[in-house]
Nucleic acid binder design. Structure first.
Lengths: 221, 221
DNA sequence: AGATCTATAGTTAGACT
DNA sequence: TAGTCTAACTATAGATC
């Protein structure tokens, strides 16, 4: 891909008030959320109380607080960390609620993190599924592969063929052994078919899914 | 340069409270100044008013404000006039807190929903990956399979063996064709190696991942 | 108005000083 | 306690949809 080298610092912006209204609005929104995220991380990592108040260019107020904005401001204004009047007036119930908020905030942060991981997994899986759906899609990509990649792919499939043969033989042996005592598990406990007969399985389609893999996933192309 | 791959993310830290006191103190100090810097940039770029209050782990207070902490807090409190009245104070705080809780709960519910979907995708992928990691795990499960399942598995693998052989032959043909014009793609455009030489690929391990699949995924056991 | 993408700029954990 | 360094991670401007 060719970059426009005539503009070396396209992404660097001057540290002065943004002139263009729309850009300012977008930047404000992005940076405000970035600021709140940083604050939330500071709370989580260091277990401290934080309050942030931001007025938008339009005068709208945004705030962030842990455990909440008011109590932190109050603590700041009274300069009395240990006895702040909030707890003096509102008692056990309030404490419970504070705990709830802390818990919710923590859970939320945790969830966001997990979600990120899961989403990445999900994307990869989507690729696998896509590969399975378009059965022969990857075949079409062969023409786009370089020689060395093709050779690697061929070698890999050859090896797969051999190994799969071994596995099939092993299974053959297992099946034959089992044939003598069809309903007796190795541990000697009698077992039934467990309703597996009703479970229709199309083996071919299952297998098809297996080898119509996406080369990108398995060969790092 | 050789990196220590056994520690893939030396610089990544878990998003939870830092256990080691000294590390926590250093991180708090660094991140606090980072937070204030971000806030100052937001003020400069967008010309907005901001106030930040942070209590250190030791209870010491740090603050940032533009134009001043007090004035911004005052502007915030003025929007909630009754906050200076102690009796009303709790009500306002409670109202805010209730709103916060509602918002958090809503966000949480939403996240849980999304997470469920993503997790389902992720789990399936995990199983595939797990199957790849524990190379022969599924072999151990053979002993626990019923006769009919074993037969289905055997048939499936036999079919796979045949089909893979066909694929390998197809690839052989493709490679041979390419051998005549190693650097000429079918569309007639000349192509280079595109740096694929530097891309070390262990084909066997990739393939191993393919056929050490989890029977549960492909045969519905 | 908001989401996504890409490439660059900026932040930071841990090791040292 | 605070500054420096480096490699890695994160934020984000601008474009696009």
């Amino acid at each position: 891909m060719v970059k426009n080298n005539s503009i070396p610092s396209r992404w660097k912006i001057e540290m002065k008030k943004i002139a263009k209204k729309t850009n300012l609005q977008v930047t404000f929104s992005k940076r405000r959320s970035g600021l709140f995220k940083k604050a939330s991380e500071l709370c989580t990592l260091c277990g401290v109380d934080v309050a942030i108040i931001v007025f938008s260019p339009a005068g709208k107020v945004f705030s962030f607080g842990h455990p909440h904005v008011e109590s932190t401001i109050d603590r700041f204004l009274t300069r009395n960390p240990s006895i702040h009047n909030l707890n003096a007036h509102c008692n056990v119930v309030e404490a419970h609620r504070d705990a709830n908020i802390r818990e919710l905030n923590a859970r939320l942060a945790q969830l966001v993190d997990i979600l990120e991981v899961e989403k990445r997994k999900g994307q990869a899986l989507d690729e696998v599924r896509e590969a399975g759906r378009k059965q022969w899609w990857w075949q079409a990509t062969i023409n786009e592969l370089g020689l060395s990649e093709l050779q690697q792919l061929r070698n890999a499939l050859e090896e797969l063929k051999i190994n799969v043969g071994k596995q099939a033989d092993l299974l053959q042996a297992a099946v034959e052994t089992r044939n003598c005592w069809p309903f007796l598990a190795p541990n000697g406990v009698e077992t039934s078919g467990l309703g597996s007969e009703g479970n229709e399985v199309n083996a071919s389609s299952g297998i098809t899914q297996m080898y119509t893999f996406d080369p990108n996933l398995y060969f790092g192309f």
